[in-house]
């Protein structure tokens, strides 16, 4: 029974899918911000995790969100997955305002269309249940299959699709019997089970051996091709972002610092932070060159932050205005955006 996993035709949607207006499948995030209060009371400090983040993911596109710890990238994913609410901003799937959804049926339809994969393959599965249970659950909840037999067929197809063979054997296993790479494939299968439009992948390969990563990344690419799937690929690794994503956004201190087509970003970075990141990436061909750039400094604190660019303290190109005025995003080429006073209108003639 292949009904549930047919390639989605953008113009003739399932009549049971209330979320999908015909023809429009993009995910649009606009001005998304998230503050976390630290402590209670009126004077509680605020951790500014995400600030004014905007981007669009078209159907069948992979967008990479690159940043280090504390950049806000995981917060962005959790907001889009509706695991928490933003402080401000909005999210649209197609032309549907996601944040205003109150109806349970619509909320479930959203979850069906926006699935998430997490970083840690060792803690994202309930250890007391077999793999088939983990895959059957979303199928049941979203009523993808109509009988136990159909569910089982669907599970075997999914496992085969993600390269876990023989499916019958794998389905009966417990998570601890599988390797990290195998578990991530199950995580992908679980996300695919409900035939989503977009998958939010939060560092899906960071905890896997490097030799296993490529297999999982190639699988994600293949699924994109076959199912016209979109991904928000979150990572701290620029190299894998370039490998898998058409466009890359660099986050720092909760802000979007640069956005560009991936190749462009890597070959001709504009933002000083992007340049710093690129210089620190280990490369088998380049070896270990002592960086002349000043990489000093810890992850900055975004608690009750002062105005100015969050990267100013570590920036080799810092100017006076950088510590006083937060730069806004400037479009410097049709597909390239930078948040930096070096490129903004605030740059005074010097």
């Amino acid at each position: 029974m292949k009904g549930a996993i047919m390639k989605q035709d953008p113009l003739s949607n399932s009549t049971h899918d209330p979320m999908m207006p015909a023809g429009e499948h993009s995910l649009r995030v606009n001005g998304l911000s998230k503050n976390f209060p630290l402590g209670t009371g009126v004077g509680a400090k605020q951790l500014h995790a995400l600030e004014d983040v905007s981007f669009t993911i078209q159907q069948g596109e992979i967008l990479a969100l690159v940043g280090e710890s504390g950049s806000g990238k995981s917060t962005a994913a959790r907001l889009i997955a509706r695991l928490m609410s933003p402080t401000s901003g909005n999210i649209h799937l197609g032309d549907r305002d996601v944040l205003s959804i109150r109806n349970k049926r619509l909320a479930r339809a959203y979850r069906k269309n926006v699935q998430m994969i997490f970083q840690d393959p060792f803690s994202s599965f309930n250890p007391v249940h077999r793999i088939e249970h983990h895959l059957a659950r979303p199928i049941r909840i979203h009523e993808i299959a109509k009988s136990k037999g159909e569910t089982q067929e669907h599970i075997y197809e999914l496992l085969s699709t993600v390269g876990l063979n023989p499916p019958r054997e794998i389905a009966r296993k417990y998570p601890y019997e599988l390797s990290g790479g195998q578990r991530q494939r199950v995580a992908i299968a679980r996300a695919l089970a409900v035939d989503p439009q977009i998958v939010l992948a939060d560092e899906p390969v960071s905890m896997l051996d490097v030799s296993i990563r490529i297999g999982v990344l190639n699988l994600m690419l293949r699924l994109k091709e076959e199912r016209n799937l979109s991904y928000l690929y979150i990572t701290h690794d620029l190299a894998s972002a370039r490998y898998i994503a058409e466009r890359t956004i660099v986050l720092y201190g909760g802000f979007v610092m640069e956005e560009a087509p991936s190749d462009e970003l890597m070959l001709r970075p504009h933002h000083p932070y992007t340049k710093l990141l690129l210089s620190a990436v280990p490369d088998v061909n380049r070896g270990f060159e002592r960086t002349s750039r000043h990489t000093d400094g810890e992850v900055l604190s975004r608690i009750d932050p002062l105005p100015g660019c969050p990267f100013a303290a570590r920036c080799p190109n810092r100017m006076t205005v950088c510590t006083e005025v937060t730069p806004s995003i400037t479009q410097i080429e049709p597909k390239r955006f930078v948040r930096c006073h070096l490129f903004g209108e605030q740059v005074s003639s010097q």
């Binding site: 195998q182 296993i212 990563r213 490529i214 297999g215 190299a239 190749d263 088998v284 061909n285």
Partner: peptide, 24 residues
Amino acid sequence: LGLLDSFPSVNGERRKLIGIPGTP
């Protein structure tokens, strides 16, 4: 050879990597 073919790079030619199929 397989290991060396498991590293996407930020510069140079962009090509499909094979890595090493299977598991240890």
